[in-house]
Design a protein around this nucleic acid. Structure first.
Length: 897
RNA sequence: GCCCCUGUGGCGGAAUUGGUAGACGCGCCUGACUCAAAAUCAGGUGGCCGCAAGGUCGUGCUGGUUCGAGUCCGGCCAGGGGCACCA
């Protein structure tokens, strides 16, 4: 660092302030690259597969190479790195790899917008982001780096697709997509805005395409049951997955149809219900617009056909379907109540019935289901309550706008009256099971899952090609394994809408591997969730060319001991990976059931937003903030115009409230960015990026540096041998050091990094005071020098996982010739954590009135006696005799008056 | 709409999982050092009453369980995440 010439004029003698400043300041810009070079040269972060030590696999969700890392990455990877460095110090062979989730839509969007090839764009982004990640000082084994868009990766994915196909885990079936009729292309849900294509603005319609599916629903029961074994997953994620899989027990009921009303002689309608108890409250039947009976009826009814077409103009997103007004259309078909041949129910087509769930048809009991109630109220079909809540008079109980779905007794239900819901369900099932129509029972018990099969076909270029050939003679033919990978062609054009693979002049035309005749390749590529469903397994041996995994290595390293990533992946990515692991086990590519033993989901990085008078957003870098609290005012630096300070929101390009990690690292250094990310906010919660707190973090770095240098002065003459006796100041310092060591170790293991940070602050404060006190006493005794050296070593090791560059610099300043990054974690001396006396708070009737200090092992009776003599307690009791005294050992005393 | 989470000083948050609410940090105030500023250091900092000792209220709102509730239970309010083709 140098000052601009002439700023202070020529200097002949050291000018105290600045000279000291230069000596005392830790220069992160200079030190950080220097230490990274040392780590690199010594290769200390590579984890050889041959290492005999116990293994620990820590993994952060790999990034999409969007072009630059963002603060969310900094947070995610810092947390993982702390765990990796800590576990390494604990003696584990740590696997901590990094790669790129490199297929996906943004590359194609960039290709269309900027005329750049997706491959070039992606690899340039990877290069830029790799450099950025390296500047963070992460302890990664870069020799294992993978990119999912590389043929050396997707070749194995194609191989597994073929193996899954052979094992019966893959099938082709029809499913719906969002279709843009102008761009002639399939749209992702996020590309549909208010029912219109984002680019064309055309009204989107649903289209049926034949697509490839992984049969994840075959595993529904196992995926659900095994959630119980995932003890190191957050409860909320486990709950979300349980709900997603959505197990429900119910009854499949075959309703007879009135033959006079059916279009083509259909005789019955099969429905699934979880509430057979409410059969006597039925008011209508409803079919999904995709139901075959609906299609049959529509063939003879143009108005119905028009209604069904209208339903199909809704997007495919669940949210749209749920929020849409409940609408239906009477098909004219009449169903016959299973318990009363004279009771006929109208059969509607309704926009809120899904073909994918159950049988795509229901009976509606409006009194006890809100959607059904909304529906009957719209079409004036009325309702009959059949469950009466406790304490309600059945004669006066009516339903108007709010359905009742709670417990109660059956009413208006003939032979069910008076039963509980459970009894009624059982009774209905028993009766209908016994009854037969044709050769089959009228009803059977069934367990249903909400989980649908995983559609993996994407009509896009930048994804893993599905290794299938379509032959007119032989049908669907798998690509022979020896012909893998099916490579993406490089010569493609994005000037026209649609899938470039489909219109490529030569790529799709091949000879059939079976008959040799002319055939064409599958032009759909795989969902990018496939890529990320097994990358953690590939990391265990990314070099093997002959198979997706090396069985010994994958079984050795997996499951991942600690997986860290965003909560937004709580369901899909994690469920797909769990499915994939099972499928890989069946096909012999892995041996375990579950991929992730421990899971941690971190919160987002958020920041204030800033808006100009016209509502456009400006970035934090363009804004100057003055004043504090409610006096804060913002102005645009360039023009001085006033800026409105808006809400704190997730950092996003659209709100322009992003802070570039590069700038922070350039200005303050990686350690400051890392420390900030770990401080204050609990890792599972959102963290608000504020400039003040970044500066606070930067200041603390300097303080640590000064503290360690001061300590090194005090400890330089410390005896090599541990003294027999420690005086009071030395003992106090040792206790503080070991208490901090114990707490920080415990909190790192629990991933409570913000609490670690607080304990490190606390210890640094205590250490600083101890050194000041020693200076005030004048002269340092050998026992204190020894304690100071021990404390300094512990302090540096405690913050080393979080600020590794500074830690190396400090470690060297303390005279060590080794790297702190490879030091074993210090051991706590348990006896230093034990106090001989303890101060307990004393409450009277639950309000704190005093403290009492007693021997740590004092008997309850002793404590009780001591408490009752306290002035404050006597005053609070006001002469009354206490009813009882509750002594909670080591915690609190409560006197009940 | 459905599922899930969160709510504590001016701000980020801590609280050993039912036992002293506000650790630690940021900000702010006062002082030291300086010609001055920055940096650094020392002290203070939930509200209200009080010179003080101390008292009293206080963990989104509301009701309950308990000797004792930020923590457990019921009802509400507000903010956020996911909803199957964004990754």
């Amino acid at each position: 660092m140098s000052f601009p010439a002439g700023r202070r004029g020529p200097r002949t003698a050291p000018n105290t302030a600045d000279e000291l400043d230069m000596q005392e300041r830790y220069n992160a810009q200079e030190a950080e690259p220097r230490w990274r070079k040392v780590w690199d040269e010594q290769g200390i972060f590579s984890s050889p597969n041959s290492d005999p030590r116990p293994k620990y696999y820590v993994l952060e969700m790999f990034p999409y190479p969007s072009g630059r890392i963002h603060m969310g990455h900094v947070r995610n990877y810092t947390m993982g790195d702390v765990v990796a460095r800590y576990k390494r110090a604990m003696g584990f062979n740590v696997l901590h790899p990094m790669g790129w989730d490199a297929f996906g839509m943004p590359a194609e969007n960039a290709a269309m917008a900027n005329k750049v090839h997706p491959k070039e764009w992606t690899y340039a982004n990877i290069a830029a982001m790799r450099a950025q990640l390296k500047s963070m000082g992460l302890s990664l084994d870069w020799s294992r780096e993978i990119a999912t868009c590389d043929p050396s990766y997707y070749k194995h994915q194609q191989r597994m697709f073929l193996d899954f196909l052979k094992a019966g885990l893959v099938e082709r079936k029809q499913s719906k997509v969002n279709w843009d009729p102008v761009d002639q292309t399939v749209l992702a849900n996020e590309q549909v805005i208010d029912g219109r294509g984002w680019r064309s603005g055309a009204l989107v319609e649903q289209r049926e395409l034949t697509q490839w599916f992984f049969k994840i629903s075959d595993f529904a029961e196992d995926l659900l049951d095994a959630i119980d074994t995932l003890e190191r997953w957050p409860d909320k994620v486990r709950l979300m997955q349980r709900n997603w899989i959505g197990r429900s027990e119910g009854l499949l009921v075959r309703f007879a149809l009135d033959p006079r009303t059916v279009p083509n002689g259909e005789s019955e309608l099969e429905i699934f219900t979880t509430r057979p108890d409410t059969l006597f409250g039925a008011k209508f039947m409803a079919l999904s617009p995709d139901h075959p009976l609906a299609a049959a009826a529509a063939a003879k009814n143009p108005a119905l056909a028009a209604f069904i077409a209208e339903c199909k103009r809704q997007g495919t997103a669940q949210e749209i379907i749920d929020k849409a007004e409940k609408q239906g259309f009477d098909t004219g078909i009449r169903a016959i109540h299973p318990f009363d041949p004279a009771w006929h129910l109208p059969v509607y087509v309704a926009n809120f019935i899904l073909m994918d769930y159950g049988t795509g048809a229901i009976f509606g009991c409006p009194a006890h289901d809100q959607r059904d109630l909304d529906f009957v109220n719209k079409y004036n079909l009325g309702n009959i309550p059949v469950v009466c809540p406790e304490g309600q008079d059945p004669k006066t109980f009516v339903i108007t706008d709010t359905a009742y779905d709670g417990p109660g007794r059956m009413i208006n239900s003939r032979f069910l009256d008076g039963m509980t819901i459970e009894q009624a369900k059982e009774e209905v099932a028993k009766r209908l099971e016994k009854e037969t129509r044709g050769n089959a029972p009228v009803a059977e018990r069934q367990i249903n899952y909400r989980l649908r099969d995983w559609g993996i076909s994407r009509q896009r270029y930048w994804g893993c090609p599905i290794p299938i050939i379509h032959c007119e003679a032989c049908g669907v033919v798998p690509v022979p394994v020896k012909d893998l990978p099916v490579r993406l062609p490089d010569d493609i054009e994005f000037d026209k809408p649609g899938n470039p693979l489909d219109r490529h002049p030569t790529w799709k035309h091949v000879a059939c591997p079976q008959c040799g005749g002319p055939a064409r390749r599958e032009t759909d590529t795989m969902d990018t969730f496939v890529d990320s469903s097994w990358y953690f397994a590939r990391f265990t041996d990314p070099w093997i060319e002959t198979a997706p995994t090396d069985r010994d290595m994958v079984d050795e390293w997996l499951p991942v001991d600690q997986y860290i990533g965003g909560i937004e992946h709580a369901i899909l990515h994690l469920l797909y990976s769990r499915f994939f692991t099972r499928a890989m086990k069946i096909t012999g590519h892995a041996g375990m059931e579950e991929p992730f033993d421990g899971l941690f989901t971190q919160g987002m990085v958020v920041h204030e937003t800033y808006q100009k008078a016209d509502g456009t957003y400006v970035t934090p870098a363009e804004v100057r903030i003055e004043g504090a609290d409610d006096q804060r005012r913002a102005t645009l630096i360039a023009t001085g115009e006033p800026i409105t300070i808006g809400g704190i929101e997730k950092m996003s390009k659209s709100k322009r409230n992003t802070v570039d990690p590069d700038e922070i690292i350039t200005t303050y250094g990686a350690d400051t960015a890392r420390w900030f990310m770990l401080s204050d906010s609990p890792p599972e919660r959102d963290v608000n990026w504020t400039e003040d707190r970044v500066q606070g973090a930067a200041r603390f770095l300097q303080r640590l540096w000064r503290l360690v240098r001061d300590a090194s002065q005090v400890s330089k003459d410390a005896p090599a041998e541990r003294p027999q006796e420690f005086g009071e100041p030395a003992m106090a310092l040792r206790k503080a050091a070991h208490r901090a060591l114990s707490r920080v170790s415990q909190e790192i293991a629990r991933l409570h990094f913000n609490v670690c940070v607080a304990h490190i602050y606390e210890f640094a404060n205590a250490f600083g005071e101890a050194l000041d006190d020693a200076a005030a006493r004048g002269g340092v005794t050998p026992d204190f020098a020894y304690a100071a050296r021990e404390a300094a070593d512990i302090l540096v090791q405690l913050f080393a996982p979080m600020m590794p560059h500074l830690a190396e610099e400090c470690w060297a300043a303390l005279g060590h010739k080794t790297l702190v990054s490879v030091q074993p974690w210090p051991e706590v001396e348990a006896e230093l954590l034990v106090e001989t006396t303890i101060t307990l708070p004393v409450q009277v009737n639950g309000k704190k009135r005093a403290d009492v200090t007693v021997a740590r092992n004092a008997a309850n009776a002793e404590i009780e006696a001591a408490v009752l003599t306290l002035d404050a307690v006597r005053k609070a009791l006001d002469g009354k005799t206490p009813k009882k005294v509750i002594v909670v050992p080591q915690r609190i005393v409560n006197v009940v008056a």
